[in-house]
Amino acid sequence: MSINCVIIDDEPLAAEVIETHVNKLASLNIVAICHRATDAFEILRKQKVDLLFLDIQMPGLTGIEFLRSLKHPPKVILTTAYKDYALEGYELDIVDYLMKPISFERFVRAVNKFFEMQPQTIEVHHPEKEGSDAYVYVKAGKMINKVLLKDILYIESFKDYVNIHTSNRVITARQTLVSIEQSLPESLFVRIHRSYIVSINQITGFTSTTISINEKAIPIGRNYKQQVFHCLNYLPPEE
């Protein structure tokens, strides 16, 4: 997993320290080094950037002002000699706040925070194609959970998190529903709503607007009705 980084710092020596730290980590790739925040606008427009190392006190446009100006900013680690902006930085959902001079040990801790915030890829294992032993690994916190596909009832999303409901537990993971949908076999699971994926084998009934799994009624999204009824081999009567 290669992370594209941009360093924004008006002090060449400070930027060089961060560059040296970045080059020690194989997972990080420097896209650009900017000595003014305004120089980074074009970089962000043209390239995919995952992480910014952003100084605060810079001429023209401060790091905080630059960050506020971005509609969809990448993740940010603030690098500064001033501690007065820490609260404001965390209100802008930064990853970490590094005080200069920045040691490599402290730098690595900040980068690890970034990786901990990233969605975890779900990997499906099929020992015998899609038999009863097929399973997924799901990371929830520090625990890697093994979940048999046959035990999954349904999956619901909440922003950047999902709840995977099984017959005996609920697992919460930082993961997008789209990435899970791409990993699960279409013969066993179907997306029925922007926020729900259900196990086809666990469906106990349905109406024109809901899918029932045991006692749980799950809504069918308007844009998903056709694929849901096709999956269920059901031809709804003409209205």
Rank of each mutant, 00 (worst) to 15 (best):
S2F: 05
N4E: 11
N4V: 04
N4L: 08
V6E: 14
I8Q: 04
L13S: 12
L13G: 07
A15H: 02
E16Y: 03
H21V: 03
H21D: 06
N23T: 06
K24E: 11
V31W: 06
V31Q: 14
A32Q: 09
H35K: 11
R36H: 13
D39G: 08
A40C: 15
E42C: 08
I43C: 02
F53Y: 08
L54K: 02
I56S: 04
I56Q: 07
P59D: 12
I64N: 01
S69H: 11
S69W: 03
L70W: 13
P74C: 09
P74R: 05
P74S: 10
K75H: 14
V76F: 08
T79W: 02
A81D: 14
Y82A: 10
D84A: 14
Y85E: 13
Y85I: 08
A86Y: 13
A86N: 12
A86S: 10
A86W: 08
L87Q: 14
L87W: 10
E88R: 07
E88I: 10
G89K: 10
Y90L: 05
E91V: 09
L92G: 04
L92T: 13
D96F: 04
Y97C: 07
K100T: 10
K100L: 03
K100A: 01
S103C: 09
S103F: 11
R106D: 15
K113Q: 11
F114T: 13
F115L: 13
F115K: 15
E116Q: 14
M117K: 14
M117H: 01
M117I: 05
H126Q: 15
E128N: 15
E130C: 11
G131W: 08
S132G: 09
D133L: 15
Y135C: 02
Y137M: 12
A140N: 07
G141D: 12
K142P: 03
K146C: 06
K146N: 03
V147M: 08
V147S: 02
L148T: 08
L148R: 12
K150P: 05
I152S: 00
F158P: 00
Y161D: 01
T166Q: 05
T166R: 04
N168M: 03
R169G: 03
V170M: 11
A173N: 02
T176M: 01
L177P: 00
V178A: 10
S179I: 00
I180D: 00
I180T: 00
E181I: 00
E181R: 00
E181M: 01
Q182P: 00
L184F: 01
L184K: 00
P185Y: 05
E186T: 07
S187C: 04
F189R: 08
H193E: 10
H193Q: 07
H193N: 12
S195W: 07
S195G: 12
I197K: 00
S199N: 10
I200D: 07
I200T: 12
Q202G: 04
T204Q: 06
T204Y: 03
F206V: 08
F206Q: 09
T209G: 11
T210E: 15
S212C: 14
I213F: 01
N214P: 01
E215D: 15
E215R: 12
K216G: 01
K216T: 05
G221Y: 03
R222K: 14
R222E: 15
R222S: 12
N223K: 11
Q226K: 10
H230P: 00
L232A: 01
L235V: 13
L235D: 15
P237T: 09
E238R: 09
E239W: 02
E239Q: 12
